[in-house]
């Protein structure tokens, strides 16, 4: 398992049209040279956005991978929520710093309203100062 190399591949994909073309032509072949587990390869090639978030991929990298796959914003957010529900809390990375255990539990930890209601972030704004 290597979160570093999962993110490294996505970093290069996000930056490089050549890597994007290689990924489009042959997803598995484009991952050669990166130290990845079978689980990580499956998540990157399917692609499984929820699994990638569960593995700990930073959203600043992941959101561009979702956009590359023409996944709309609200769907992108929902896929991450579904990934936490299906696979459990984020394993490592910045979101595991205090444990990212799901939207509802996370909101409760903060003493804030529960999850954003419509997937687009148009509810759930908090004025709680905790």
């Amino acid at each position: 398992m290597s979160l570093y190399y999962v993110q490294k591949f996505l970093y290069e994909l996000n930056r490089s049209p050549a890597v994007q073309q290689a990924y489009t032509a042959d997803r598995h072949a484009s991952l050669e040279g990166f130290t990845l587990s079978d689980e990580e390869i499956a998540a990157l090639t399917e692609p499984d956005i929820g699994k990638l978030f569960h593995l700990g991929v930073n959203g600043q990298i992941l959101m561009h991978f979702a956009a590359f796959h023409q996944i709309e914003w609200a769907d992108y957010l929902q896929r991450m929520r579904d990934g936490i529900d299906a696979y459990g809390p984020v394993r490592e990375g910045v979101y595991a710093m205090t444990g990212y255990e799901g939207v509802d539990a996370h909101a409760a930890t903060l003493g804030q309203e529960s999850r954003v209601a419509d997937g687009a972030g148009n509810a759930g704004t908090s004025t709680n100062g905790s």
Binding site: M80, Y95, G102, V103, H106, G121, G124, S126, G129
Partner: peptide, 14 residues
């Protein structure tokens, strides 16, 4: 909480 499942949450008092 940008680009995460909590995108849209904002702690205005903070």
């Amino acid at each position: 909480w940008p680009a995460t499942p909590d995108s849209g949450k904002i702690n205005e008092a903070w």
